[in-house]
Simulated scan of single mutants.
Amino acid sequence: MKTMQWLVKREMWEHKGMLFWTPVVEGAVMALFAATMLLLALTGDDLHATLTVNGSSGSVSHVVGDALGNRDLSQTARLMANTYMTAASPLFLTLGALVFFYCLGALYDERRDRSLLFWKSLPVSDAMTVLSKAGMALAVAPAIVVAVGTLTSLLLLMMLCALLAANGVNVFGQLLATPDLYLTPLRIAALLPVYALWALPTVGWLLMVSAWARSKVLLWALGLPALTVLLAVWANKSFNLMLNTEWFMEDVIGRVLLGVVPGYWFLFDRTQRQAMSESGANALTSADLLSYSWATLGGVSVWIGAAAGAAMIYAAIKLRQSRAEC
Results as ranks from 00 to 15, higher is better:
G263H: 11
E325L: 13
G223M: 07
D113F: 04
L181C: 08
A49L: 07
P185L: 09
Q174A: 14
R111D: 04
G173Q: 05
S277T: 10
D288Y: 02
H48I: 08
F33M: 10
M1N: 11
R214P: 00
A49S: 12
G259F: 06
R112K: 12
R320F: 01
M249Q: 06
F118M: 12
F100I: 08
A306Y: 02
L156V: 04
G298W: 03
G263I: 11
S59K: 05
W13M: 09
M159R: 01
S293I: 14
W198F: 10
R270S: 14
N82Y: 00
K216N: 15
L155V: 15
K9F: 11
T3R: 12
P142F: 00
A221W: 00
Y264N: 11
A189N: 05
Q5R: 11
V53K: 02
C326E: 10
S291Y: 07
V124Q: 04
A306R: 07
K216M: 11
K16V: 08
L138I: 04
G263R: 13
R320E: 13
W303L: 05
V148L: 03
M276P: 08
A196M: 08
C161Q: 05
A106E: 01
V261N: 01
V24P: 02
L7R: 09
V260F: 00
T94A: 09
A213S: 12
A306H: 11
A165N: 12
K9L: 15
T22E: 02
L47I: 15
K318H: 07
V99T: 13
A165W: 01
A31F: 08
K216E: 11
E14C: 01
A143T: 15
L68M: 15
G254N: 10
P225F: 02
A287V: 09
S132Y: 06
L116Q: 08
V24G: 12
L47E: 12
L267M: 11
A213C: 04
Y182R: 07
A196H: 04
D288I: 01
L154D: 03
G223E: 03
V209W: 14
G173L: 02
V130C: 01
A28D: 06
A283I: 11
T271P: 00
A134F: 01
G168I: 07
M80K: 00
L241D: 09
L73Q: 10
M85P: 03
W247R: 04
T83M: 00
A28Q: 05
L197A: 15
A87H: 03
V25L: 14
E11D: 13
